[in-house]
């Protein structure tokens, strides 16, 4: 199993410390305008530059660094849009245009939150459109549309998003479905090179979400194993019942497989199989999270169904993240097409 290096452990732990009590910020959010204090700290510490080359003011980190850090940070349940920020900075840097450059500078400084929107597959978007996750955070949304020479990467300002209804999600966040009228938004870049950078960012988003999902699984599973040892019924710890032991063992196997695939995908970033690997990682991590988190609730009994215990927000975040940045079904469908 791939373990984090000592440097990665240091990085991860400093981020976890910065994020602090994410659960209460998540619980407090409820789709409203976010409190940006922690976000500003995160930006001041330089986090959105993790994947940028040192020459562009970043840390020169790798996809493996990102995966290690996000896996560890996920369990804080912090609502800050970390995955999106890490994955979007390289896109803006790659544009090579003045507007993109200015946007990147503001983003790194913590003044502007730039979030990518993705093609919507949703009953609420029968005519297409783009889903913006964590919408209350977004000052600017970036949208990629078209193909080849016709590809355009545009930025929508918050004023241009306001008309789309804000819909709350169960993790305390909210999403909007944006439409892109012809000529709307500010052009950041166009053509095949921009498309390539855009798809690379989409891969990073999937990978980052997959790593976070595995982190949520790890946390929920650890709580469950602990509970199996603590809770007694029929005069013995429930962890002594073989029905639960076998289930826990299966969860352990499922977690290990998902984590291995996420790490493998991180090692594929930059190569020919990057797209396939990131889609697989997202599909697998999402399916694992959906399955394992349900079992964690079940094995806790009624306390697992109560919102007064931390499992409930972990469950809701996992369900939310499983459908964000490429649903597992969409990722698998794409793999099928590419044969």
């Amino acid at each position: 199993m791939i373990a984090p290096t000592p440097e990665q452990v240091l990085m991860r732990d400093s981020l976890i410390q910065l994020l602090g009590d994410g659960v209460s910020r998540m619980r407090g959010a409820d789709g409203g305008p976010p409190d940006r204090a922690v976000w500003v700290d995160i930006c001041e510490a330089g986090w959105p530059g993790l994947l940028l080359p040192e020459a562009s003011g970043g840390w020169g980190g790798t996809a493996i660094d990102m995966v290690m850090v996000l896996e560890g940070a996920a369990a804080t349940l912090a609502p800050e849009p970390l995955i999106a920020a890490l994955a979007t900075a390289p896109l803006l840097a790659a544009c090579g245009t003045e507007p993109a450059h200015a946007l990147l500078a503001n983003m790194l400084a913590g003044q502007t939150v730039v979030l990518p929107a993705e093609m919507a597959i949703s009953p609420l978007a029968p005519d297409g459109g783009f889903v913006l996750f964590d919408a209350p955070w977004a000052d600017v949304a970036v949208i990629g549309a078209g193909q080849g020479d016709g590809f355009r990467l545009v930025a929508l300002s918050s004023a241009e998003m306001e008309d789309a209804p804000l819909r709350r999600t169960i993790d305390g966040g909210a999403q909007r479905i944006l439409s892109l009228a012809a000529g709307a938004g500010r052009l950041l870049a166009e053509g095949p090179k921009a498309a390539q950078a855009f798809y690379a960012t989409r891969d990073l988003l999937r990978l980052g979400a997959a790593a976070s999902l595995v982190g949520l699984v790890a946390r929920a599973f650890a709580l469950t194993v602990e509970y199996l040892g603590m809770r007694s019924q029929f005069g013995q710890p429930i962890g002594a019942f073989q029905a639960l032991q076998h289930r826990a063992a299966s969860m352990h196997v499922a977690h290990a497989a998902a984590w291995a695939l996420v790490c493998e995908a991180a090692l594929a970033v930059g190569g020919d199989k990057e797209r396939v690997a990131c889609a697989m990682a997202k599909a697998k991590a999402s399916a694992t999270a959906r399955g394992v988190l349900k079992d964690c609730v079940q094995m806790h009994g009624a306390i697992g169904f109560s919102d007064e215990y931390v499992l409930a927000p972990l469950f809701r975040r996992a369900v939310t993240l499983a459908s964000a940045f490429g649903t597992p079904e969409a990722c698998l469908a794409e793999l099928g097409c590419e044969g």
Binding site: G31, E118, A120, I121, S122, P123, L124, P126, V131, R167, R168, T169, I170, D171, Q175, R290, R316, V319, T320, A322, S323, A324, T327, E329, A330
Partner: peptide, 19 residues
């Protein structure tokens, strides 16, 4: 679970919506 799969990106929406 199937409803969640079909809902795509709308799966985590908190309140019902009219379509």
């Amino acid at each position: 679970d199937i409803a969640q799969e079909l809902a795509g990106a709308a799966a985590p929406l908190k309140s019902p919506a009219s379509v």
